[in-house]
Design a protein around this nucleic acid. Structure first.
Length: 282
DNA sequence: GACCAGGACCAGA
DNA sequence: TCTGGTCATGGT
């Protein structure tokens, strides 16, 4: 066990905001599976020090928790109105997480039209049935080969519904090399998005989540039900939507409005809405 | 029992 | 190009 002293970081917001699905909190400690590691994290209230119970080195966590992002500068760049200003101040220290591309891809494919607890349950079942047990009750996320070769009857027991055959097909593409993660990293946002959306089961929203959380595309702006409701409820930049009102337009709007780090803005707005609903700005 | 959840997709207009 | 219905599942 050791400590880090990250600047401008809040562990609870970061792990609770809905970007990752494999962390659970008990008392002051979070336990999660990352790769083949079971990790325990906690943060001291007064000092802000991060307590790490893991064999992995500090560099791993600096990377995973994106300590290389200059949050202060990002806040300045995305702070466009009272709503985002409130979210930034209320949830200060929330950082995006650098997720594993494979796990992130499958996780968001099976997240469509589902609540977060349901998503967590599906991933938990999938790992129990097809992953490896790392320690009591904690399983690794299944690798592409295992998922590609899995029986649909087994996937059905993971309560995936209509998503089952889609993630199996995606796994097959990853195994064959047809879907190349290295290539996605190199592609610029727009083209990486088009490539992901060629997969059945991936639309604009899922593609944006995967690109934002696993492929370094900060200019992704996932428009889910919460973000859509926010834009409509607060009538933010209403004139923009006079000519178009669909979800695709909302994504384009977010990119223009918040700039390069709109992905961060989205995450703050999303979390604020999920936790507090429509907040008053007076 | 209707409605919603980190939606995607298709048919029909 | 845009809209409505449909697809499973679990929680409120």
């Amino acid at each position: 066990m050791y400590r880090l002293e990250p600047e401008l970081f809040n562990l609870n917001y970061t792990l609770d905001c809905g970007q990752v699905f494999r962390w659970e909190k008990e008392g002051d400690w979070w336990t999660g599976v990352v790769g083949n590691n079971v990790i325990r994290l906690s943060q001291e209230k007064e000092s802000g020090q991060l307590l790490i119970d893991s064999e992995l080195p500090p560099e791993f966590f600096s990377r995973y928790l994106r300590f290389d992002d200059d949050l202060s500068s990002i806040y300045v760049s995305i702070n466009r109105d009272l709503l985002i200003d409130r979210a930034i101040n209320k949830y200060k220290g929330l950082r995006l997480i650098r997720q594993d591309p494979w796990e992130c891809l499958i996780s968001y494919m099976l997240a469509t039209a589902s609540s977060i607890p349901t998503i967590q349950k599906r991933i938990c079942l999938l790992s129990q049935f097809l992953g490896q047990e790392l320690e009591d009750g904690y399983f690794s996320f299944p690798d592409p080969e295992t998922l590609a070769n899995a029986d649909l009857s087994l996937l059905d027991r993971c309560k995936l519904g209509f998503r089952a055959d889609r993630i199996k097909t995606a796994a097959e593409e990853v195994c064959s090399g047809e879907l190349d993660f290295d290539a996605l990293f190199r592609l610029e946002y727009k083209y990486a998005r088009e490539r992901l959306m060629r997969l059945r089961g991936i639309g604009e929203k899922v593609a944006d989540c995967v690109l934002l959380f696993a492929f370094e595309k900060m200019e992704s702006f996932p428009v889910d039900t919460h973000v859509r409701q926010i834009i409509q409820h607060y009538h933010i930049d209403d004139s923009y939507f006079e000519t178009c009102s669909n979800l695709s337009c909302m994504g384009d709007w977010g990119r223009e409005y918040f700039g390069h780090y709109c992905g961060y803005a989205q995450e703050y707005l999303y979390y604020q809405k999920r936790i507090e609903g429509f907040v008053s700005l007076y």
